Computed example of a mutant assay.
Amino acid sequence: MTTPQKSYVEHVAVRVQDIQWHIHFFYEVLGMDVREIDGPTDAPNQYWTLGGLQLMHTPGFTAPPSNDAGWLAHLGIMVQDLPAALQAAQAWGVKPLPQGSNWLQLPDGLAIELIQASGTSVADILAINPREKP
Protein backbone atom coordinates (compact mmCIF):
# COMPACT_ATOMS: atom_id res chain seq x y z
CA MET A 1 0.00 0.00 0.00
CA THR A 2 1.38 3.38 -0.99
CA THR A 3 0.66 6.49 1.02
CA PRO A 4 -0.44 9.14 -1.50
CA GLN A 5 0.68 12.14 0.51
CA LYS A 6 1.97 13.32 3.88
CA SER A 7 -0.02 15.62 6.15
CA TYR A 8 0.09 17.32 9.54
CA VAL A 9 -2.24 19.35 11.73
CA GLU A 10 -1.54 23.01 10.94
CA HIS A 11 -3.61 24.39 13.82
CA VAL A 12 -6.23 23.52 16.43
CA ALA A 13 -9.14 25.90 17.14
CA VAL A 14 -10.21 26.22 20.77
CA ARG A 15 -13.22 28.13 22.13
CA VAL A 16 -12.39 30.27 25.18
CA GLN A 17 -14.39 32.68 27.33
CA ASP A 18 -11.52 35.01 28.19
CA ILE A 19 -9.40 35.35 25.06
CA GLN A 20 -7.03 37.93 26.58
CA TRP A 21 -6.16 35.58 29.47
CA HIS A 22 -5.38 32.79 27.00
CA ILE A 23 -3.39 35.07 24.67
CA HIS A 24 -1.23 36.22 27.57
CA PHE A 25 -0.85 32.73 29.07
CA PHE A 26 0.24 31.10 25.81
CA TYR A 27 2.62 33.99 25.04
CA GLU A 28 4.11 34.62 28.49
CA VAL A 29 4.34 30.99 29.64
CA LEU A 30 4.97 29.18 26.34
CA GLY A 31 6.28 31.93 24.05
CA MET A 32 3.57 31.33 21.43
CA ASP A 33 3.64 34.62 19.52
CA VAL A 34 0.88 36.01 17.30
CA ARG A 35 0.53 34.87 13.70
CA GLU A 36 -2.79 36.49 12.85
CA ILE A 37 -5.63 38.41 14.54
CA ASP A 38 -9.28 38.69 13.54
CA GLY A 39 -10.78 41.87 14.98
CA PRO A 40 -9.23 44.63 17.07
CA THR A 41 -5.95 43.76 18.80
CA ASP A 42 -7.31 44.73 22.23
CA ALA A 43 -10.46 42.58 21.83
CA PRO A 44 -9.94 40.03 19.06
CA ASN A 45 -12.62 37.64 17.85
CA GLN A 46 -9.95 35.10 16.97
CA TYR A 47 -6.22 34.88 17.54
CA TRP A 48 -3.77 32.50 15.85
CA THR A 49 -0.35 31.73 17.32
CA LEU A 50 2.86 30.62 15.73
CA GLY A 51 2.84 27.02 16.82
CA GLY A 52 -0.64 26.09 15.65
CA LEU A 53 -3.21 27.37 18.15
CA GLN A 54 -6.35 29.29 17.18
CA LEU A 55 -8.20 30.92 20.08
CA MET A 56 -11.86 31.70 19.39
CA HIS A 57 -13.44 34.25 21.73
CA THR A 58 -16.75 32.67 22.78
CA PRO A 59 -18.40 34.58 25.66
CA GLY A 60 -20.49 32.33 27.87
CA PHE A 61 -18.78 29.17 26.60
CA THR A 62 -18.72 26.34 29.09
CA ALA A 63 -16.68 23.27 28.32
CA PRO A 64 -18.40 19.90 28.71
CA PRO A 65 -16.98 17.60 31.39
CA SER A 66 -13.52 16.29 30.50
CA ASN A 67 -14.83 12.73 30.12
CA ASP A 68 -17.36 13.80 27.45
CA ALA A 69 -16.32 12.21 24.14
CA GLY A 70 -17.26 15.38 22.23
CA TRP A 71 -14.68 17.61 23.97
CA LEU A 72 -11.05 17.97 23.01
CA ALA A 73 -9.17 15.69 25.44
CA HIS A 74 -6.00 17.81 25.63
CA LEU A 75 -3.36 19.70 23.67
CA GLY A 76 0.17 18.28 23.63
CA ILE A 77 2.63 21.16 23.41
CA MET A 78 6.36 20.73 22.79
CA VAL A 79 8.43 23.17 24.88
CA GLN A 80 12.14 23.93 24.73
CA ASP A 81 12.45 24.14 28.55
CA LEU A 82 9.86 22.10 30.47
CA PRO A 83 10.92 23.11 34.03
CA ALA A 84 10.85 26.81 33.08
CA ALA A 85 7.42 26.49 31.45
CA LEU A 86 5.99 24.68 34.48
CA GLN A 87 7.42 27.28 36.84
CA ALA A 88 6.01 30.15 34.75
CA ALA A 89 2.57 28.47 34.61
CA GLN A 90 2.26 28.37 38.42
CA ALA A 91 1.64 32.13 38.58
CA TRP A 92 -1.41 31.74 36.30
CA GLY A 93 -3.53 29.72 38.72
CA VAL A 94 -3.75 26.69 36.47
CA LYS A 95 -4.73 23.40 38.09
CA PRO A 96 -2.43 20.38 38.11
CA LEU A 97 -3.93 17.19 36.68
CA PRO A 98 -3.41 13.66 38.00
CA GLN A 99 -1.69 12.45 34.80
CA GLY A 100 1.61 14.06 35.89
CA SER A 101 3.33 17.30 36.80
CA ASN A 102 3.46 18.34 33.14
CA TRP A 103 -0.35 18.20 32.79
CA LEU A 104 -2.30 21.41 33.50
CA GLN A 105 -5.92 22.51 33.30
CA LEU A 106 -6.64 26.09 32.22
CA PRO A 107 -9.55 28.13 33.63
CA ASP A 108 -11.95 27.37 30.75
CA GLY A 109 -11.35 23.64 31.25
CA LEU A 110 -8.77 23.05 28.50
CA ALA A 111 -6.14 20.48 29.48
CA ILE A 112 -2.60 20.83 28.17
CA GLU A 113 0.30 18.39 28.30
CA LEU A 114 3.69 20.10 28.16
CA ILE A 115 6.37 17.89 26.60
CA GLN A 116 10.13 18.45 26.69
CA ALA A 117 11.47 18.79 23.15
CA SER A 118 14.93 17.60 22.20
CA GLY A 119 17.69 19.96 21.16
CA THR A 120 16.61 22.89 19.02
CA SER A 121 13.59 21.13 17.50
CA VAL A 122 11.07 23.77 18.68
CA ALA A 123 13.07 26.63 17.15
CA ASP A 124 13.71 24.57 14.01
CA ILE A 125 9.99 23.91 13.46
CA LEU A 126 8.95 27.50 14.22
CA ALA A 127 11.50 28.79 11.68
CA ILE A 128 9.52 27.11 8.90
CA ASN A 129 6.75 29.14 7.24
CA PRO A 130 4.48 26.52 5.65
CA ARG A 131 2.32 29.23 4.04
CA GLU A 132 5.22 30.96 2.32
CA LYS A 133 4.74 31.11 -1.42
CA PRO A 134 7.49 29.30 -3.36
Rank of each mutant, 00 (worst) to 15 (best):
D124I: 07
P40S: 12
E113G: 04
S101T: 11
A73E: 13
E36S: 11
D108H: 14
H57C: 14
A123N: 12
Y47T: 05
P64W: 04
S66Y: 02
K6W: 08
V79Q: 11
T3Q: 14
I128G: 05
L86Q: 10
E113N: 13
A91C: 08
E132S: 09
W21S: 02
P64N: 09
Q17T: 15
S101Y: 01
F26N: 00
P83M: 03
P130Y: 11
I115K: 13
G100D: 08
G93I: 07
G119W: 07
S66W: 00
Q116M: 04
T41D: 10
L126N: 09
Q87L: 09
A89G: 01
L53N: 01
V14L: 15
S118Y: 12
L126G: 05
P64F: 03
P83Y: 04
Q90I: 09
G93V: 12
L110R: 02
D108K: 03
W103Q: 11
L72N: 02
T2K: 15
A43S: 15
A84R: 13
E132L: 14
Y47F: 15
N45I: 10
M32A: 05
L50M: 12
Q20W: 06
Q116D: 07
Y27S: 09
W103M: 11
G76I: 10
A123M: 07
A63T: 11
L50G: 06
A69V: 15
L50D: 05
E28C: 09
Q90W: 03
D68K: 09
E10G: 06
I77T: 08
G39I: 03
R35H: 14
G93K: 03
D42I: 04
D124R: 05
L72S: 02
I112T: 06
K6T: 15
T2A: 14
Q105C: 10
W103I: 07
Q17Y: 05
K95Y: 02
D124G: 05
W71P: 00
F25N: 01
A88H: 08
Y8Q: 10
P130Q: 08
D68N: 15
T3I: 15
A127P: 05
F26H: 00
Q54F: 00
L104G: 05
A43L: 10
W48K: 09
F61I: 12
S118D: 15
D81M: 01
E36C: 06
Q105W: 07
A111Y: 00
E28R: 11
L55Y: 01
Q90D: 13
I128M: 10
G109N: 06
I77E: 03
A63W: 02
I23K: 04
F61R: 07
I77Y: 05
N45T: 07
